[in-house]
């Protein structure tokens, strides 16, 4: 499916917002969250630019699965490091092992459903962390209410991930055309939620 000019504009704005977040939006955090958020928004920025350059066909590349794992894993690592001090080390180990597991199961032939299970497990834990943690913290009053926007962004990234995963697995929830039509808008909305959540939360 050919990318429309509107899709390119939406992706460009997504990239600019991600660039803002890397340059300005995470100043003042500890070292590990800064590294984690830089990876998350940096991957989003570069991926957005490459999507504009190459078009939607790039989504068929097997590398996309690995790249798209880096975003939720690093984002959730930053959140856990900032807000769940007792889980820092264990989540860091999970993030590293999870990323390696996804990379390995997508790089070498692995029998059965192991690659799918690994992907679902890693994405599931990371996605639920991004979705639930900011909302719980906001409800508990430990962070300002608008921090829950990060959770909304987490929900959107989860929806996007599910749509793409089922599409790649050959059992699409929506048609490929519909998914590609909503993807740039979904990515932009997700990024707006993340940037707003970190800015005002």
């Amino acid at each position: 499916m050919k990318m429309s000019p509107l899709d390119r504009v939406l992706l460009l704005i997504t990239g600019i917002l991600a660039a803002y977040q890397v340059a300005v939006g995470i100043d003042g955090f500890d070292t590990v969250p800064i590294i984690a958020y830089t990876i998350a928004f940096g991957v989003l920025l570069v991926a957005g630019l490459l999507l504009i350059i190459w078009g939607f066909e790039v989504l068929d590349s097997p590398t996309i699965v690995v790249v798209s794992t880096a975003i939720p894993l690093s984002l959730s690592l930053g959140l856990v490091w900032q807000h769940l001090a007792s889980f820092r080390t264990s989540y860091l180990i999970f993030a590293i092992l999870g990323f390696l597991a996804v990379t390995l199961t997508r790089s070498i032939p692995v029998p059965g459903k192991i690659p799918t299970i690994v992907l679902a497990l890693v994405h599931g834990i990371a996605g639920m962390t991004i979705f639930l943690l900011p909302i719980i913290l906001s409800v508990q009053g430990k962070t300002p209410p608008l921090f829950s926007f990060v959770g909304v962004g987490g929900a959107l990234i989860g929806i996007g991930g599910l749509l793409l995963s089922f599409l790649k697995a050959g059992r699409p929830i929506l048609s490929r055309g519909t998914i590609l039509k909503v993807l740039p808008g979904l990515l932009l909305l997700m990024t707006i939620c993340f940037v707003a959540g970190f800015k005002f939360g």
């Binding site: 660039a19 890397v22 340059a23 300005v24 995470i26 100043d27 800064i34 830089t38 940096g42 920025l45 570069v46 630019l49 490459l50």
Partner: peptide, 18 residues
């Protein structure tokens, strides 16, 4: 350059290197 801008420049550089 502020660290934030250097971070962003580094991210873009990593894209180029990849």
């Amino acid at each position: 350059m502020a660290w934030g801008f250097l971070r962003l420049l580094s991210v873009l550089s990593v894209g180029l290197l990849m």
